[in-house]
């Protein structure tokens, strides 16, 4: 039972890091990115090919350098950021909103089919397997897992602290200003593309980092492990917890991962119908996304508001009342009508 929970919570922690990264891109910068799961997968692949040995035919993949884990993590984050900088440069330059989403949707499927079919890269459809051992071996089964769980929690905590710090900083405020109205942000001297781009790359770095953790967690990875539709689980987690709020995002990923594991445990999955359990889970994810969007788009812990307190106040939704609604100034309360535009 303890092992079971360790496994689930480890996975939740890993995806918590990923969710923090995706939330920077979507929650802060407002770019609904569908290719982030490819960055995660790339993180897994690169970590694996860097830490496992040379391939033996018929398996083929590049590198196989047998590097220590932490070095591999560092390199894969760099590789992922470099890769994201290409996609971001194309998609963020002039495309926004649905056009950005469409482009990243196309990108992720293109990458997916490329990886699946171009075997010299990551062994194509059959994927990679091999041990990525961050602890250097020599540990008992249980000790290894508890230690790895602790390691994942530590990384999550660090990621959370970094993201939280950025979220409250002038940088976080500027990113949100660009999200809310990029024209006005440009009028006040902000470089819209560069702001979005930096946020995108930081998010991608977190995605790569979580991929590196996942590589150590799973031991085998192939394209079926990262169907691009899996990213909806992350978006469901962000929506549940609170878009734009790191605290909410971490909460959301634990709720969704642990909650769904627990829920789907009781769904009968007869051997004749192996697809039943996953399918029901996906349906629930879909429902969750729609219902959250419709009825509580802010999530359980909505985005923080920057106030004049030196201690930043948290708007915690139903736990505390929201900040006061606007106090109307009598002479300024006439609804504003926009006149017909000129030229």
């Amino acid at each position: 039972m303890v092992q079971y929970w360790t496994a689930i919570l480890t996975e939740a922690a890993i995806f918590g890091v990923l969710a923090l990264g995706i939330d920077m891109i979507w929650g802060w910068a407002g770019d609904f990115d569908l290719s982030a799961y490819a960055y995660f997968a790339l993180g897994v692949y690169v970590t694996m090919i860097l830490t496992i040995g040379k391939p033996s035919p018929p398996v083929e993949y590049i590198l196989g350098w047998h590097l220590p884990y932490l070095l591999a993590v560092l390199i894969s984050v760099v590789v992922v950021v470099a890769f994201a900088s290409l996609i971001g440069a194309v998609a963020l330059r002039a495309l926004r909103e649905v056009y950005f989403s469409i482009t990243t949707l196309g990108a992720v499927w293109a990458i997916y089919y490329l990886v699946e079919n171009f075997t010299p890269l990551f062994n194509g459809y059959n994927g990679l397997s091999g041990l990525v051992d961050p602890m250097g071996g020599g540990l008992s089964y249980n000790a290894y897992h508890y230690l790895f769980f602790g390691f994942c929690l530590l990384v999550l905590l660090l990621a959370y602290l970094v993201v939280m710090r950025l979220s409250r900083s002038p940088f976080g405020r500027m990113v949100r200003a660009v999200r809310d109205d990029e024209l006005a942000a440009a009028v006040y001297g902000r470089n819209v593309f560069w702001t979005k781009y930096r946020t995108y790359l930081t998010g991608a770095a977190l995605a790569g980092l979580s991929g590196s953790l996942f590589a150590a967690y799973i031991g085998a990875f192939n394209p079926l492990d990262w169907r691009p539709t899996e990213i909806f689980v992350l978006y469901a987690a962000i929506l549940v917890g609170g878009r734009g709020n790191p605290r909410g995002v971490v909460l959301g990923s634990f709720i969704v991962y642990v909650g769904f594991v627990e829920l789907t445990r009781y769904i009968p999955s007869p051997s004749a119908r192996p697809e039943l359990g996953p399918a029901l889970r996906q349906i629930l994810i879909g429902l969750l996304i729609i219902l959250m969007l419709k009825f509580r788009p802010g999530g359980l812990i909505p985005e923080r508001l920057g106030t004049d307190d030196s201690r930043r106040r948290w708007s915690t939704g139903w736990l505390h009342p929201r900040p006061r609604a606007s106090v109307k100034i009598p002479e300024a309360s006439t609804p504003l009508s926009v006149e017909s535009s000129d030229s």
Partner: peptide, 26 residues
């Protein structure tokens, strides 16, 4: 612009702070 533009999900004070803020800080 012809219609007022504000950063809708930021507080009023943050809106003004962004007007004031020096960019190196960001």
């Amino acid at each position: 612009f012809q219609s007022p533009r504000e950063w809708r999900d930021l507080t009023v004070i943050d809106n003004v702070r962004i007007g004031r803020s020096n960019l190196a800080r960001e």
